[in-house]
Design a protein around this nucleic acid. Structure first.
Lengths: 225, 225
DNA sequence: AATATATTTTAGCCTTGACTAAATTATGGT
DNA sequence: ACCATAATTTAGTCAAGGCTAAAATATATT
């Protein structure tokens, strides 16, 4: 039985609130790969602790106490991911599981020392913003999916929507990493894939699916929508 | 209920085997601050897994598989302690509890990367030797308790017998840390305390208890027994 | 050798988080 | 409004690791 902690649930609820607005039991089942009854059980526990408000059959919402714990856990998770990549030289597709364990270690002081040691990073290895010690995590950037970029745009990869191992390894195989600057070439209408031009002038065609998962910054206005 | 893992039990058995030769149920109760029935329970679990040999009412011994796990856990624990002190700047009396949690995170690869990142340290912040990746931990040093040093000896603190918070903080208050070189002055017979001379020439008298817990290297032979 | 004391084990129960199966409540199509 | 389907909750279990109280075994003293 691989057990999912209260913090993991709070983190998942936070993410689903951001992504979808409302949090169904089902959405937690999917995000945490568990069973409906387990979710209901845990929601009772969390509601009991005052971390969520839960009305039967209606869904769940974080209280401010719950949100604080969720953000703090997310902060720890992302700081440890930075540690694993920057200091221990793991690749960005290998760090999630260990960070999942490390996030449960230590208190605020340890987290703050880790933060200082890492130089107060603002983003984790997948480009996700790291909440500050006081729960701020408004991401000042204005990223768009690469699928929205238009022909002629210069774009720089700043994040990914899907940070699962499979997708990250797909990017690795394409030699795509955070910071890479590309130019949008031809857009092939029928399947919405695009030709991208590498810094060395070579070209590659990426599928719509891949483009939707790449969060980029537009470096010029040529193709602004 | 703060739960003690199978690895914690194996580590404790290893340490007691070293210190006392044989491992009684009672010795585990004391080392792990738990209850006799919990120990018996866990010994069944460990024997079942093939990590110890346990005969009712007779005591327990690590198998080679058990010893391997114990050493690997000890290695992780001590490497994380080095990380916490060297990189996150915790004091040596504050790291034990977090290392206790961190040692359960990660696999051999993570441990080896951590080891490399830390520069393959041979000793932890308390002077205890760190087992190598292949389970070697024969401590080449020849340390003696400071209580055995004689008048005129130059001694250097290289380890502690008791690495509990209270004792370490006691040393902190005396401004005693690993590496400090002292000279043994007068030995006060009736309670076996000794006067020690600091590098700056000042003197301080330490109790027998404190001296027994300080593991030192003799830097000359003046007082060799 | 017999009894007193200390140690260890057994028996039975608790807690957390998980699971399956069955019952309940919502929702969508007609 | 009614029925089919989907989502959620309830009820009943399980596995780890912990606990207390009582029974069993060892050890020590006379």
């Amino acid at each position: 039985m691989q057990t999912i902690s209260r913090e993991d649930y709070l983190k998942a609820i936070l993410k689903i609130e951001e992504e979808a607005g409302s949090v169904s039991n089902q959405s937690l089942v999917e995000k945490l790969s568990t069973r409906p009854a387990s979710v209901t059980n845990m929601l009772h526990t969390l509601a009991n602790a005052g971390w969520v408000e839960h009305e039967a059959y209606k869904g769940v919402r974080l209280t401010s106490a719950g949100k604080e714990i969720a953000l703090s856990t997310l902060r720890k998770h992302r700081l440890w991911e930075v540690f694993l990549v920057e200091k221990l030289k793991f690749s960005w597709d290998a760090v999630h599981q260990w960070a999942e364990d490390l996030e449960h270690v230590g208190d605020e002081e340890l987290t703050n020392r880790l933060d200082a040691f890492l130089g107060h990073p603002a983003f984790d290895p997948h480009g996700d913003p790291i909440p500050t010690a006081h729960g701020n995590w408004t991401d000042g950037r204005n990223l768009i999916p690469a699928s929205n970029a238009l022909m002629g745009d210069r774009i720089q990869l700043k994040g990914v929507v899907d940070s699962g191992e499979a997708f990250l390894q797909h990017l690795d195989r394409l030699k795509i990493e955070l910071g890479l600057i590309l130019v949008v070439g031809k857009c092939l209408d029928f399947d919405e894939s695009k030709t991208l031009i590498w810094p060395d002038g070579s070209e590659e065609s990426l599928s719509k699916q891949t483009l939707q998962n790449m969060l980029v910054e537009q470096l010029n206005n040529k193709g602004k929508e």
